[in-house]
């Protein structure tokens, strides 16, 4: 049972990581909570459903196309709504509320267009998992784990060694100073939305395959995604993935004892705990969470 719970925790953690990593990229660079990030994944999933199940386009085209559409979606939100607000020097709190508005609009739009019923994407067959020392894991779940690991390595190298990554960190630290060295902060912020939302698109695809599609799928995961980012440290990209695994494991081992109805509350309790005790998370630097 321990091994199965461990695997369950790792799978859950991987899914949260898909959301938290993209979110973290956007947060570190823009310094406000882009709540609508979950909706990006939802929109991506429905787009995939529409093109694959509706129009019958083969997956080797729809998969990359979906990721592109997700990136575009995030980019447009930033361009049309956040940028004008930022130009007026509004606080991050207003941007948070605006992002909640966007999230509600998008989720309900999906419901309006596709209906509230859960949609199933039958691309890969589901079946009994592969048995491994008494625990079971399915091929899709293994694929998700591997993809997230690759993502982790990729983000870590990107953030530490690549030029864009270093520039993003500079902009995150101090946008004004970065500007004086000739860095175009706005362009970097655009990039953060493009990359972050593309990862959300990937998340949408994988979650659709593993859990099916419904209008609130992305938003439900945002809570855990955000919590994971806080746990790992919102200023650290690889940290957000570590935080996701911590959350996934605590949730799944936690309900060994607690009634499972409390599972969703665990994320919030952890969130509160970290915000109060260690707001910079495990890997982050303290960036003004407190007075």
């Amino acid at each position: 049972m321990f091994l199965q719970l461990l695997i369950n925790g790792l799978i859950a953690g991987s899914i949260y990581a898909l959301i938290s990593s993209g979110f973290s990229i956007i947060y570190t660079t823009n310094k406000f909570v882009h709540f609508a990030h979950g909706s990006t994944a939802t929109v991506a999933a429905y787009f995939l459903y529409w093109t694959f199940s509706g129009l019958g386009i083969p997956i080797y085209i729809t998969f990359p196309l979906t990721i592109f559409v997700a990136a575009l979606f995030g980019f447009l939100i930033h361009l049309v709504i956040y940028l004008p607000l930022k130009k007026r020097k509004t606080s991050s709190v207003i941007l948070l509320i605006a992002s909640i508005g966007i999230m509600i609009f998008c989720d309900n739009l999906m419901q309006l267009l596709f209906g509230a019923n859960v949609k199933i994407l039958s691309i890969f067959p589901h079946g009994r998992g592969i048995e491994f020392l008494g625990a079971y894991i399915t091929p899709i779940q293994i694929a998700i784990l591997i993809i997230v690991l690759i993502l982790f390595v990729g983000l870590w190298t990107f953030s530490k060694y690549s030029r864009l990554g270093k520039i993003m960190r500079a902009v995150a630290d101090n946008p004004e100073l970065a500007k004086t060295t000739g860095i175009n902060s706005v362009r970097i912020q655009h990039w953060s939305f493009v990359i972050g939302s593309a990862i959300a698109g990937l998340a949408g695809i994988l979650i659709a395959l593993e859990h099916n599609i419904e209008p609130s799928m992305g938003t439900h995961l945002m809570i855990q995604g955000f919590t994971a980012a806080v746990i790992g440290g919102v200023t650290s990209l690889p940290g957000s993935i570590v935080g996701a695994y911590v959350l996934g494991l605590v949730e799944n081992f936690g309900i060994w004892w607690l009634p499972s109805g409390y599972k969703s509350a665990i994320a919030f309790v952890l969130l509160l705990a970290f915000l109060l005790v260690r707001p910079q998370g495990i890997f982050g630097i303290n960036k003004g969470a407190r007075e």
Partner: peptide
Amino acid sequence: TFLQTDRDLKTQLTK
């Protein structure tokens, strides 16, 4: 137990 909106029942089922 689980919430009607939960989509991951694996741990409950493991128990």
